[in-house]
Design a binder for these strands. Structure first.
Lengths: 188, 188
DNA sequence: CCCACATTTTAACATATGTAAAAAGAATTC
DNA sequence: GAATTCTTTTTACATATGTTAAAATGTGGG
């Protein structure tokens, strides 16, 4: 069986039976590096879990520059939040940094599961709350620490990120230019 | 009856009956300006909704400076997320900027409600997902726009914030010094 | 109304970051 | 393996922001 089951059953209070119910609604899809899984301006009807691979979420600013604001790796959830929560067109594009394997579930089906199964509803709640905590920590980190510290903590958290992600994308994620990132890296 | 009911029933798919069940576990508390509702290092056992008043959440950085990273107003939820999600001591302090009226619910009781009532579990899920969307938008805003734009959008979103919050706190929220904020205000 | 205290603005200077362009280094293709 | 293209680093300069301190303004108490 797949390790996603262990991950879900252990991390969230989900019984094996309800995991199986959840999993029976999932389809595994593969996509290639460079593709966009969710594009700006579109409405999407699926939520994904990353089984294998890396993705980034970016936004295009007023100057037309791509600003990366999230990296996703194995185990992370991909959803266009504006889409999912408010059924509004996506502001962001989610792009595949590598060939990926995704677990896909239909949004309507997922909500149906949530509405009919207390345990799955609480699984969904915990999924969102965990995300909330991570985002709060990122907001805190962005506000409290300088770019150098954030760069160091990023490579500590994802040691392989330098091999998987381009420095220009990391720089925009850190809120600095690539030139500044180069200076930080030279310092060390 | 109170308008919190309308707010909850309309904003989240919560039936009046289940709202009443939820509300029967709530106690209304008043606290005075300057008090800390949640303090750094402590474990808390309650979640709050702001009925009246303003609060801020701050973190103390390596230099001992208070960094405000969240303002809460009427209708917002107050919870120490690290606390709530992972039962870890709070990193932040939540301080009252005004005299407030809070709706308080015991964490254990809330989780019990979530675990036994599918509708309330989905209410909790939507609460977290809505928070997630707001946080994502804040992360985006912080990364995409400069301090001046964020200042202007902050006072647009909360027109009374200048009367309710000190400029030094707003500056730290924007990630700049108070001197820079003064310069921005002078420009306009 | 005046005084003491808190808050905000202004000034002067040092430092960090952005911009634009060139140079260096890697990776890919033929 | 030479040539092309993409990525990263470096340089030089302009601008924005931080720091520290002083001045100005606002606020509440007696």
């Amino acid at each position: 069986m797949n390790s996603i089951k262990e991950l879900f059953v252990n991390r969230y209070s989900l019984s094996p039976e309800n995991f199986d119910l959840f999993y029976s609604n999932i389809t595994e899809v593969t996509r290639s590096k460079g593709e966009a899984i969710i594009s700006k301006g579109e409405i999407h009807h699926s939520v994904y879990f990353i089984k294998k691979g890396a993705v980034r979420s970016y936004y295009i600013n007023a100057d037309g520059k791509e600003i990366t604001y999230w990296f996703g790796f194995e185990g992370d959830v991909i959803a266009s939040l504006g889409n999912f929560v408010e059924s509004k067109p996506s502001l962001e594009t989610i792009e595949l940094l590598e060939d990926v394997v995704l677990l896909k579930i239909d949004r309507t089906k997922l909500i149906e599961l949530y509405n009919t199964n207390v345990e799955l509803a609480n699984f969904g709640r915990q999924l969102a709350e965990t995300g909330l905590l991570e985002m709060e920590q990122q907001i805190l980190l962005n506000q409290v620490t300088d770019a150098k510290t954030r760069y160091l903590s990023l490579i500590e958290k994802h040691p392989q990120i330098l091999q998987r992600v381009k420095l220009g994308q990391i720089a925009s994620y850190l809120g600095i230019t690539q030139v500044t990132l180069s200076r930080i890296r030279a310092q060390k």
